[in-house]
Nucleic acid binder design. Structure first.
Lengths: 227, 227, 227, 227
DNA sequence: GATGAATGAGCATTCATTCAT
DNA sequence: GATGAATGAATGCTCATTCAT
């Protein structure tokens, strides 16, 4: 099943409260993870609430305690997947690194995430298209966030200036889709091979082929060394 | 409305029969085109049979004469879009040209097709994901066909050998998605800018950066000259 | 079952059309009549759509062809009952008669109607209270119509002037309720006894006790003579 | 909120027990009063148990300690409203007074009660119709009780003999409905005007117009004097 | 053959009631 | 004892498919 994020805050002392709140949060994450899988396997439209409660092992009433309805459930699932991915990147990427390093590393983390949790990735990329208005809005917002990051790359290299206006939007959604399609077929092992290819597509438009190559090689060495 | 392919064979002489068969085929194409738009605009799941018969201006009974059901309708729509695209490529691309030329030209045709008929493209790339088992199978088959063509590129350049097994599958679906996302936003005008970028992604892995550049430039010149 | 109104227009000649339109209208009236009974017997809230389709012998789909939903069904039932009662009164009461005669005769018709179709009466008086917003609005409008007629009685006698503003509203709903309660118990035979009592309550406030008595006696004689 | 009846017996001495039993009874009355309002405002069917516990400020478990279920809650609410009204009448009406005096005074008390607590009145007259079998039975029983009292008026005047068998049932429920409709519109101020009219309807059938008038005038004078 | 009215299985959602804590 | 989270049966409604005309 789609993995859980590690409980975030855990410094509390008082026992009873912890246990209650923590167990609730854990349950919530379990439910969201189970729903992620159900949505991913059946598709947003085809997944029935009955499928969801069967998958999450909650009752009908429990479902409507957690969520306002099926669409709300999907939106929360979507948000959780995005949040988990963002958290992973936040933890892994040095905030004071330069753009190229952040982009390279972020790409790697994303690919690894998608490789580990293809169903979660499917939610964000594919099912969001049929998950109702709210889900579409979230999808758009997420793509814009990624695009906004990429756009900062225009200041990095001499090639940024000549790019078309919406270039980053295409790159952002195209890349995620690339991952998704690939991983949905179960080729998780290829993720490692895929990474340089993807990173190259990200970097080249901004840095040019030569510097992109340099950056990638450097990152690769560093990664190998850190093992 | 999504455009019709020109009637294929038209060398027949006998008048009554022709007229009958031709009119039926024309009607069939009209219906499929109308259904393409309905599916694209509403999504496979949300489109009701009533929407389809309203869009195609046929009766309920007529619908079930043409199609076995809603899913069959979608599959036929899907097949028709693919067939039309293939026909266009078949007509445009010289069958005895080398692989690089075919790839370059085919890419251009595909991009132009998607730019002209974004709704049809949406059917193939997006809605096929929620169009039932059969549709998914066709989607997979289509991607594999494209991938099979690409794979022949491995014999062309010295770089093909080191590519991962499933490399072409990713490229195939990734590229189509790139188009779709871009065109769904209404940026039809950018298609022209998009083409070299896409073609580069297709050619480079097989030919290397330098020869890819050459091929593209040559194709571009030829295209400009043919105008 | 709650009785049907006689088909209204019947002078058409063309056979096919008549038959079609007439049968549809007849079916419609049958369905409304059956729904009237179901709503009356179970109450608006307790009646399920399944009860209604079982009672009207239509399918689920048929129900939603006829009605937008359960509330719409109730509103249409309500409107039909009111329309039938109004039609009866319109036919029976001479339009150029004076107010007292109209009131006397109208009261008789209403009582007879309620005696014949207690379930229909229950719809208008009781169930309308729990039949949703639209039904409540219709109820209010109907009561106001009756009240408006009664109010014209203020010009007839010397007593009208001293009546409180909302006097007619109370009288209107009170009287119908009186009928309903009485008839719901199955005492349909008493309707004959009830009539003079009710008419008296209607007339006295406007005409005074003496003239009310006169009018009633005259009406009674006329009615007896007409038999 | 619907008012509470004064605690009934209070002659106990022992402090702890009193306090315990009294507090429980007080709580019970508070809960019933709150539920009265919830049922009256939302209607029996629309009121959810959650609404009731929110209104009565008790817990879910508490609710099922007090009541067997929603219907039982409604029945108890109904019974309490009837009991309070009866208690008021019992206190106000001299038990050895003649029938006419009791009827006149009782009518006044009832009207005043309905004017003060329209929501409570709504429970008895309107919502009881949709409050389930038991509630309907109680409604019938209550109406019969009132009718039984009225029926004793047949011995009082020379007119009682010719009245139809079920005359009193109609009068009883009709009158209460008259009040309800009137008060539901918010015309609480009119209650004073309404009283003579209602009392007249009650008395006349038994005493005849003249004696009814006398009795009413006498009661009116007495009432004025007692102020 | 062609039509579109009729069918009814299936779905999302609500809420009275129970029972573990 | 008191609490309120969990349960799941029941309901209003949609829509793919059939079949009488």
């Amino acid at each position: 099943m789609t993995q859980l994020p590690p409980a975030l805050a855990s410094g509390s002392v008082e026992k009873g409260r912890i246990s209650r709140a923590a167990r609730e949060e854990e349950r919530r994450q379990q439910v969201l993870a189970a729903c992620t899988d159900v949505f991913a396997k059946r598709g947003y439209q085809a997944a029935t609430v009955e499928n969801l409660i069967a998958g999450a092992k909650i009752s009908m009433g429990g479902f409507y305690k957690f969520f306002e309805g099926k669409e709300d459930c999907f939106v929360q699932v979507f948000d959780r997947v995005v949040a988990v991915a963002q958290e992973r990147i936040r933890i892994a990427v040095a905030p004071d690194a330069n753009w190229a390093a952040q982009a390279t590393f972020g790409t790697r983390i994303l690919i690894e995430f998608a490789a580990e949790q293809p169903l979660a990735a499917k939610i964000v990329v594919l099912e969001a298209q049929t998950g109702g208005e709210e889900a579409l809005a979230r999808y758009g917002a997420t793509v814009r966030e990624v695009a906004a990051f990429l756009r900062r790359g225009r200041d990095e290299g001499k090639f940024g200036g000549r790019l078309p206006e919406n270039f980053e939007d295409s790159t952002a959604s195209g890349l995620v889709w690339l991952l998704q399609t690939r991983l949905a077929r179960g080729d998780l092992g290829d993720a490692e091979d895929l990474y340089p290819q993807v990173a190259k597509v990200v970097l080249e438009p901004y840095l040019g082929a030569d510097r992109a190559q340099q950056v990638l090689r450097a990152a690769s060495d560093e990664h190998a060394a850190s093992r």
